Simulated assay, not measured.
Amino acid sequence: MILVKFFRSSFIILILSVLLTSCFSRYLISEKQVREHYASKDIKPEIQIIKNDTLSLCVASVGADTLPMLLLIHGAPGSLWGYMNLMDDQDLQKHFHIVSVDRVGYGKSSLKLKKKRKYVTSIATQAKALLPVFDLNHSDQKVIVLGRSYGAPIAAKMVSLVPEKVKELIMVSPVIDPDKEKFYWFSKWGRNALIQLFLPGAFNTATAEKYSHSDELKKLLPVWQTLNVPTTVIQGGNDWIADPTNIDFAKKHIKSKKAQYIFLYNAGHMITYTHLDMIKEMLLRSQLFKEKISAIDLDKDN
């Protein structure tokens, strides 16, 4: 009887592990997939590891470092390779030093803390850890910072630490409202120690971030009041990960007159893929603040 219960439990754990992995497999890109993707491409990103006594940051960059930097910060789970379509774009390569970074706890990026913790869930700590990336650029021009999903509040915090170095902040599908954190049927299973043994490390890191995210976002509230760099918030109306009302939170709490908000009624979460042309146009033509945009529906005719 005990043996039957053991096998039954093991089977359930295995099934749950497979289901959990498949739920977010689209956001996890393997090294093999990266190799296959770039096998036939002439321009491949340069991989660098920024290291000191406590920090190890993995970054991929493309474009001359004498061009203005476009810094890309991924969500959870995710990796620097989640921005391959931006890094591969030949028009952007000609105009920007494109740098995509693995956040601490993802890929080959890690941070040693005084207090031993398995995961770095602090938004402030994540943001500070990314600051050395700025030193990779030699253009003497201010940086455009783009953060997606869980990467958006980290991008905002980082910008608040060095506003003098930043030209623009773009938050795509941001998860920034502490009262709108979404949990799913599988969320609690992702915290099970046995199940975590069978899950990708990025998934476990993302789960740890999720369960502390609301509290971390509350700590971030003062940042929105003082954010004074040009800021754009882009949100999809059919986003199942970031509640669409996150854009309302942004409108309420970002006091800067240099902020604009774009609502794509029929867009989902992966706007950097589905609306690449729109984001490219913003970056290349510097149209972000030539006119105030309160909402835009680019999908209604589709």
Rank of each mutant, 00 (worst) to 15 (best):
269 H>N: 12
287 Q>H: 01
298 L>M: 09
265 Y>S: 10
290 K>P: 00
299 D>R: 03
294 S>Y: 14
270 M>G: 07
267 A>C: 07
274 T>M: 07
271 I>W: 13
267 A>Y: 14
280 K>Q: 08
278 M>P: 03
298 L>Y: 11
291 E>M: 07
265 Y>P: 04
281 E>P: 02
281 E>S: 07
297 D>P: 03
277 D>Q: 11
284 L>Y: 02
299 D>T: 13
286 S>Q: 03
299 D>Y: 07
289 F>N: 06
287 Q>V: 00
267 A>H: 15
282 M>S: 02
298 L>E: 11
270 M>W: 13
270 M>P: 05
267 A>D: 10
279 I>Y: 04
282 M>V: 00
287 Q>E: 01
298 L>K: 08
271 I>M: 11
293 I>S: 05
281 E>G: 03
286 S>T: 01
288 L>D: 04
270 M>H: 10
285 R>Q: 01
266 N>R: 09
266 N>E: 15
295 A>E: 15
288 L>F: 02
296 I>K: 15
295 A>D: 12
270 M>C: 06
281 E>T: 09
270 M>F: 14
277 D>E: 13
274 T>D: 11
272 T>V: 14
298 L>P: 03
279 I>T: 08
265 Y>V: 15
288 L>M: 06
277 D>W: 11
277 D>S: 14
282 M>G: 02
276 L>M: 10
271 I>Y: 13
272 T>Y: 12
287 Q>P: 00
299 D>S: 06
286 S>I: 00
285 R>K: 04
268 G>P: 07
288 L>Q: 04
299 D>I: 07
268 G>L: 08
266 N>I: 04
299 D>E: 15
